[in-house]
Amino acid sequence: MMPKEIIEETTITSWEVEFKRDINSYSLDVTTTYPDESAEDSTSIQYFRHIRNSISHSKCTYVEKNNKQYVIFKDENPGNNSQRCEIKMPTSDAGRIMEFLYQKMMIYLNNRWKNR
């Protein structure tokens, strides 16, 4: 994970839009109390922000259920602990998301490097 300050918000937003076009191919179980987000509307969730925060604050857990492995990302607003998001997914989907982000970050960094 990279510090959130390295990549412009508009870039992250464009990645999120691209990711959400394929959102139905993932098995995501989301609970959120953040304003403007709804578990019933998967496109309203800011997945990358929540996953990034969860990883950077060590709020990830792995669980097994019915011989299947899952990762749970938990994000909580430190200024308002009533705002929480929990994203549970199979570890295979977590790997797909990380691969998607890795590819986007490498393209982004390589373009920044050559434009110096």
Rank of each mutant, 00 (worst) to 15 (best):
Ser56Cys: 12
Ser56Arg: 12
Ser56Thr: 04
Ser56Lys: 12
His57Lys: 08
His57Ser: 08
Lys59Tyr: 00
Lys59Met: 05
Lys59Gly: 11
Cys60Thr: 11
Cys60Ser: 09
Thr61Lys: 01
Thr61Phe: 06
Thr61Leu: 10
Tyr62Met: 12
Tyr62Val: 06
Val63Met: 02
Val63Thr: 13
Val63Trp: 02
Glu64Trp: 05
Glu64Val: 01
Glu64Lys: 05
Glu64Gln: 03
Lys65Leu: 02
Lys65Pro: 02
Asn66Tyr: 07
Asn67Ser: 12
Asn67Gly: 09
Asn67Tyr: 10
Gln69Lys: 08
Tyr70His: 01
Tyr70Ser: 05
Ile72His: 03
Ile72Ala: 04
Ile72Leu: 07
Ile72Arg: 04
Ile72Asn: 09
Ile72Gln: 08
Phe73Leu: 05
Phe73Thr: 05
Phe73Ser: 04
Phe73Lys: 02
Lys74Ser: 14
Lys74Pro: 14
Lys74Leu: 10
Asp75Cys: 06
Asp75Ile: 00
Asp75Ala: 08
Glu76Phe: 00
Glu76Lys: 12
Glu76Thr: 10
Asn77Lys: 08
Asn77Tyr: 03
Asn77Glu: 11
Pro78Gln: 08
Pro78Val: 01
Pro78Phe: 00
Gly79Cys: 09
Gly79Leu: 12
Gly79Glu: 15
Gly79Tyr: 08
Gly79Phe: 00
Asn80Leu: 09
Asn80Pro: 09
Asn81Tyr: 11
Asn81Met: 13
Ser82Pro: 12
Gln83Asn: 14
Gln83Pro: 14
Gln83Gly: 10
Gln83Phe: 06
Cys85Asp: 04
Cys85Leu: 04
Cys85Met: 04
Glu86Asp: 12
Ile87Gln: 00
Ile87Ala: 01
Ile87Phe: 00
Lys88Val: 00
Lys88Arg: 13
Met89Glu: 07
Thr91Phe: 02
Thr91Leu: 02
Thr91Ile: 07
Ser92His: 05
Ser92Trp: 04
Ser92Pro: 14
Asp93Thr: 06
Asp93Arg: 08
Ala94Trp: 01
Ala94Gln: 00
Gly95Asn: 01
Arg96Ile: 02
Arg96Leu: 04
Ile97Pro: 09
Ile97Met: 02
Ile97Thr: 03
Met98Trp: 02
Glu99Arg: 02
Glu99Ser: 13
Phe100Leu: 08
Phe100Pro: 13
Phe100Asp: 00
Phe100Tyr: 10
Phe100Ser: 03
Leu101Val: 09
Tyr102Ser: 14
Tyr102Met: 14
Tyr102Ile: 07
Gln103Ile: 12
Lys104Thr: 06
Lys104Trp: 08
Lys104Ile: 06
Lys104Tyr: 08
Met106Leu: 15
Met106Ser: 13
Met106Arg: 14
Leu109Met: 11
Leu109Phe: 13
Asn110Val: 11
Asn111Cys: 08
Asn111Tyr: 07
Asn111Pro: 07
Arg112Cys: 15
Arg112Glu: 13
Trp113Cys: 14
Trp113Val: 15
Trp113Asp: 15
Lys114His: 11
Lys114Arg: 14
Asn115Leu: 15
Asn115Asp: 15
Asn115Ala: 13
Arg116Ala: 15
